[in-house]
Structures are given as C-alpha cells and as structure tokens.
C-alpha cells in the first residue's frame, strides 16, 4: 500500500454503505449518506497535497513558491455545496414519505400502491 491516508477514505465509504444497507429509519439513512459524501471530498483534497508546501494564496509569497494544487480545491468546493443541498432535498423527500405512509422504515416503504 503506498499511502495510509487513502485507506481512511475507503473505510469511511464502506462504513457509510453499511449504514445505508442496515438502516431502519430514513433519516438515519440520510446521515450515513452525508458520511459517504464527505469521504469523496477528503479523497480529492488528499490527492492535491504536497508535503511542506504552502496554501495557494500568494499575498506575501513569491510566485514560484511551492504550493498545493488549486484545481482540486475548486472541485471540492462544488462537491461540498452539492452534497449539502442534495441532503436537504432527501430530507424533504423523507418528510413527504412519512406524510403519505405514516412510517419511516425503508423496509416497509417498498410496496407500490396503484
């Protein structure tokens, strides 16, 4: 294995998936999805890191100083925003599901009614 920090990302992903598979409450399921989404942000930032480099803000630094990758950080900004907003939408769907079926158990919501 070439680096240990990437393993933490894989662990968070798999444990979030386990939470989704074994969840008995829709809101618990959405929280596990939050853990999965944050693991992807973590992986993106870990890829762009350079040891002993500075942050990509060049106010007092010379322009050829060693700095961390800025493109990956811009990608991660979008990832964080989209993740938060999708979680809010899923919570609204969970509220509507409870209103219709009077239960928050995903195993009981599987029957489709005509």
């Amino acid at each position: 294995m070439n680096s240990i920090p990437y393993l933490v990302t894989i662990w968070l992903f798999v444990i979030g998936l386990y939470g989704i598979v074994r969840s008995r409450n829709l809101i618990h399921l959405v929280n596990c999805l939050t853990v999965i989404q944050s693991s992807t942000c973590l992986l993106l930032i870990m890829i762009g890191y350079r040891t002993n480099a500075a942050a990509p803000v060049f106010k007092n630094l010379p322009e050829d100083a060693k700095a961390v990758d800025p493109v990956v950080q811009a990608l991660t900004l979008t990832d964080v925003v989209v993740g938060a907003v999708v979680i809010a939408l899923l919570l609204a769907i969970a509220i509507q599901a409870h209103k219709q079926f009077n239960t928050l158990d995903p195993h009981k919501l599987s029957a489709m009614k005509g």
């Binding site: 944050s38 942000c41 930032i45 870990m46 762009g48 890191y49 480099a53 500075a54 942050a55 990509p56 803000v57 700095a67 961390v68 950080q73 991660t76 900004l77 964080v80 925003v81 993740g83 938060a84």
Partner: peptide, 14 residues
C-alpha cells in the same frame, strides 16, 4: 492541516 483554507471554510459552514 492540508493547506486548503477555502475548502475548510466551506466545510465548516456546511
């Protein structure tokens, strides 16, 4: 700690 201040602000706020 990974020198990404703008992403840190986003994640903190979210």
């Amino acid at each position: 700690a990974l020198k990404a201040p703008e992403v840190a602000l986003s994640e903190m706020v979210v």
